[in-house]
Design a protein around this nucleic acid. Sequence first.
DNA 1: TGTTAGTGTGACAAATTCATGACAAAAATT
DNA 2: AATTTTTGTCATGAATTTGTCACACTAACA
Lengths: 230, 230
Amino acid sequence: MSANILVVEDEPAIQELLALNITQAGHHPIRALSAEIALDLMRETIPDLILLDWMLPGMNGLELARKLKSDALTKNIPIIMLTARGEEYDKVRGLEVGADDYVTKPFSPRELNARIKAVLRRRAPQMTDDPIEFNGLRLDPTTHRVIGNQKTIDLGPTEFRLLHFFMSNAERVHTRSQLLDKVWGDRVFVEDRTVDVHIRRLRNALSVSGHEDLIQTVRGAGYRLSAQNS
Amino acid sequence: MSANILVVEDEPAIQELLALNITQAGHHPIRALSAEIALDLMRETIPDLILLDWMLPGMNGLELARKLKSDALTKNIPIIMLTARGEEYDKVRGLEVGADDYVTKPFSPRELNARIKAVLRRRAPQMTDDPIEFNGLRLDPTTHRVIGNQKTIDLGPTEFRLLHFFMSNAERVHTRSQLLDKVWGDRVFVEDRTVDVHIRRLRNALSVSGHEDLIQTVRGAGYRLSAQNS
DNA sequence: TGTTAGTGTGACAAATTCATGACAAAAATT
DNA sequence: AATTTTTGTCATGAATTTGTCACACTAACA
């Protein structure tokens, strides 16, 4: 869960503090004293997150943000704006160019870390195309097949995506809304209860290899894929 | 929304002024003339916020802040640093140890109250998704699991939220009303005594791992989660 | 020692939440 | 065009959770 975080801040003391914080939070800081340096550094490493000072000498934060957001390669990188108290920060314009959040100086390390964490978490749980194995169940996204204990498991399209998502995010409880978001996608015209039905169908299909209770109900919360039975 | 505010300030006149302000703002001041006294007082009551003078005789403010922030019990308490004008306040180091804000003397009552209010508001949603551990009990919001001494503890939705809240705000006494607010949320059509019943259910569930008396009754006040048995 | 306000506890009915089978519309396949 | 598969919803019943009560118990105080 470690991430590269680009820190664009002209004041060395503040930058030092930010870097310290980031390190302590288990991430890796990349330092830039100006927007120009930042752009240079990004040719080497594309960061997972950018902490960007609103006011910078030369090209200011807003300009840099706009530039990054207009480039396909970098436009998905989340940005957290840093603003000094009293400094006039135009929240609307900041958000307009795609800043994901902003923090007012002076900030507490706790607050900053919370924001960083929140933004990083917001990155959608990714479903890669790599084969996944979990507790004797093997799912291969490319061949679109699922095998459990030498037995081929037949799944409908939705059940397949559902299982794929569960296996990519095991042990974690997902609410019905989250599942609709991640598995169904845009079509949010679907009732929550529909998830239940598909869960049942998936469980039913998995029962051929005895993996039926891999998917557990967490009452009042949602569903979870886990090996533990309680 | 009344809060206990610990005032650590060696100059009696300033302290008096601060206390007066705090009272007028509807909060309850607890006074300490030194860092040592402050630590003593905190054994009785864990404050919701600390106003801390940067310069103190003996252990200075920075040291005290660092000490508090390194203790799991107190590290979530927000701190506002008080600094005299001209006095050299190392902003970076202050923030480094986790001060949430700072105020320069002389300050106007209005400014101080505004800061206090802001800080208290900021800590409002204090229940994160991070796993919490307390005295051998481990609660993980993402997996929705509670484990105590290798044993899985089965909780209903409300009990889970209740425990989550207690673990996020340990060592602090919560009245029934507060619990209804924080754990039940909107549905305030619930009797105070209902809390008692849920506390009992929670205790009962926790007894599986011997953590039953982690939740203590404070007669006439409410409940508290604490490792101490008194 | 009694009195009393504040808590613990078991029981219970109402409310909520889930699992499941059925079914028709929509999509995909033949 | 006919057939098969997949999908979303619903109704129903089972299982769990929840809020209250009545009553037992405790600690504090006169």
